[in-house]
Design a binder for these strands. Sequence first.
DNA 1: CACCCTCTGACCATCTTTGACTTTTGACTA
DNA 2: TAGTCAAAAGTCAAAGATGGTCAGAGGGTG
Lengths: 158, 158
Amino acid sequence: MRNISDVIEQYLKQVLKESQANAIEIKRQDIAQRFECVPSQINYVINTRFTVEKGYLVESKRGGGGYIRIRRVILHEKQDVLSSLMDIIHEHPRLNEQLVENVLVRLVEEQMMHEQEAQLIYHLLSDEALNLRVDDRSFIRRQQLLALMKVLRYRNGG
Amino acid sequence: MRNISDVIEQYLKQVLKESQANAIEIKRQDIAQRFECVPSQINYVINTRFTVEKGYLVESKRGGGGYIRIRRVILHEKQDVLSSLMDIIHEHPRLNEQLVENVLVRLVEEQMMHEQEAQLIYHLLSDEALNLRVDDRSFIRRQQLLALMKVLRYRNGG
DNA sequence: CACCCTCTGACCATCTTTGACTTTTGACTA
DNA sequence: TAGTCAAAAGTCAAAGATGGTCAGAGGGTG
């Protein structure tokens, strides 16, 4: 693996997968020690890899007996997935390629669309295709991702 | 071989051929060092020799743990259909919903995409989703349809 | 000679790593 | 109970590590 962040990401996902409950609780310092990095590296990994749109929820507590809890969000209804993603899209001030990718990957994981469809749409929403100023790009992405959600809603019986 | 670009091209193709998967991942700096050239030379080689038309797909990531990934893909046999559609897209001064639909229908007829995919994209490119001034809408549609063509060049056997 | 590739380097964009400083929390003490 | 302290975790900006772009110089070929 190329960088320590990826390694830590994989490790955490592995632990998460192996845990019965869909949540794990870690001690930041422990993880940092295990991978020989500074503690704040763990925050970086969490902030970039375990985001809401990817379907993770993170809680933590400081002080003695502190912890970081990572939870995989489990939504039972397709509707929930769509509406939570719509909320995220609405709330995010800037929609960059990374976020678009996260959302599309999530939709595929949740079996709301096929890999190939996601692939196509990703390219339509790429920086390359949307060769505009950042704000305009963000605007278009928001419009189109919301349009996508709308289609998926009735396509999956909403 | 007369120039360094050709040498690098051959080298990369050789490595690609020898790799089990039809993809390789390189570090720009490494290759540049091996051939004693500036890093941007690698970009030049990639931009001129590993294009989509020639059947290659290139992805990359910057920053720590960055890389350049080159993938061999199989081109779709109906390049002529794509070319003619691209011409149409280029030549039309205004791209309205009707034209988008025509293009998508054609692509489905030629079995270059599935009905459902066309449906999705049609919605993304609709007047409703692209709630903009006519010219801007037209601009976005052009960009995105061209992006679509680019993907379709190699899909189905990539 | 003109033109089209190549090559180069300065400058840019993006992602990661690090560390100093901050905030929160619980336990212990006065 | 209030205050203090140490043990977490959080924040943020700078530094580091890559890759990308672009315009101009350089060179070979018809």
